[in-house]
Design a protein around this nucleic acid. Structure first.
Lengths: 242, 242
DNA sequence: TTGACTTATATGTCTAGACATATAATCGTA
DNA sequence: TACGATTATATGTCTAGACATATAAGTCAA
């Protein structure tokens, strides 16, 4: 077994080319707008075939680190500050990862025909059945977040009979619904009476709100609102640097 | 000019293969864990060379949609809910994109040797000079966000002489510093007197807080805290679906 | 049953070509 | 000078092979 870095193991040629270029970009030696050597120049420098350097450059382009233009060449892209990777873990996983005891409590569950408000929230037009779930997550017996969720049963019929009294709906969905897309909206509110009681905080205390809307290839799956105590909870997002 | 989708233009073969597979994954026809046809099977199905299907599968792997294992085959990966792409635009770009008039006002600027608090905030050990900037961004004359920033001059010496009275420091950095990495921490607070006044909101109103810490290959560049009125501003994060 | 060895196989990387295509640069013309 | 046609060129895609390598699966002995 080797304790050295992967890079030292035995990088293949195209990976070495990619890493060489990536390093020059990250260190700023090649600033945004800088033209990267042409493929035929890299072919000469590394003594390999064009397909090999092409693979290296294609991957850098797929990672948005460079931009390739026919006839013109390849150029270092400007950093795109507007794109960052936000880690929003499954709450249970998040709490257990912190080494704290996870607690879950189902507050309410209702199966009903979608009301106008439900349809609006899910972004669907046709009427159908939904499950509405309210629950609470806690860490070491302290309220961590309250969850208010709507599941579209026309997309996830199994959810009608799933037992959410022990398994949180988020975890259940993660294991029963294939690859999904989602949109998160983050905002801040101050706790009203009901929220304050559920989270065991003072009325008027700040709360972080995450609204997550999930779909799979144009089909709505679920809409969920999570409320966290704003002063204790922090969302960490790491910039996507390639 | 064509108004049809790019896909209809004239997709190359490897892109068609990639799109075909992507579609089956996104629709759930091939759920997580499903084995994708072997390369030689796809070669037979599409009547092309192995390099062509290899390119399609490699890109899907780079996008984390599939996982490839030697001898075993290629498999659909589980969705990774914990990773979402958070769009944090440059504030000026964000406001102008909304079709509103961007306003900028420099409140304070100080050049000083880094205090202990500064070093702590920037995560550096060595003493050095820093610029501290406080400013306000507005949309249609209404306060949009207040910014409190620290720039490490040992990494960005030019910032010492940059004119931040007209150009916001975020925009300036975006154009003068090459590719960077950053970490964002999002939280919620309630406005204190000073914040309330700067944002023209009530004391006790909710505020969304973004702390952004930026570096470039292990070198600290800047630390910034942005305060937004919590009820009007919303951060939108789109799940990374490939 | 377990562990060690062998083998088959799918992916990983690479080559030396080929033709396609978008477009920057040049040249010629009005 | 401005505009339109031509040309050169860098990237985009693809082929038909090759050998490398990790590893699942099978084989055999302890």
């Amino acid at each position: 077994m080797s304790l050295t870095a992967d890079a030292a193991d035995k990088p293949t040629l195209y990976k070495r080319i990619r890493a060489d270029i990536e390093k020059r970009i990250l260190t700023g030696e090649w600033p945004p707008g800088h033209r990267i050597p042409f493929e035929h120049e890299l072919v000469a420098r590394y003594g390999c075939s064009r397909m090999t350097v092409n693979k290296a450059l294609s991957e850098l382009a797929q990672a948005d680190l460079i931009e390739r233009r026919r006839r013109a060449g390849s150029f270092v892209r400007r950093p795109q500050h507007q794109s960052a990777v936000l880690k929003i873990a499954d709450i249970r996983a998040e709490i257990t990862a912190l080494g704290r005891a996870y607690g879950y409590e189902l507050i309410g569950r209702k199966l009903r025909a979608a009301t106008a408000a439900d349809r609006d929230r899910l972004g669907v037009k046709k009427a159908g059945k939904v499950v509405a779930i309210t629950c609470r997550h806690s860490a070491d017996k302290v309220p961590f977040a309250v969850e208010d969720r709507l599941i579209d049963l026309s997309s996830v019929p199994n959810a009608a009979t799933a037992d959410f009294s022990r398994e949180p709906p988020g975890s259940w969905l993660l294991h029963h619904v294939p690859w999904t897309e989602a949109e998160h909206t983050i905002s801040a509110i101050v706790a009203d009476d009901r929220t304050a009681e559920a989270l065991d905080i003072a009325v008027g205390a700040p709360c972080l709100v995450i609204d997550r809307y999930t779909w799979r290839s144009a089909r709505t799956i679920t809409a969920v609102r999570l409320l966290y105590p704003g002063d204790s909870h922090r969302l960490v997002a790491r910039f996507k640097g390639g």
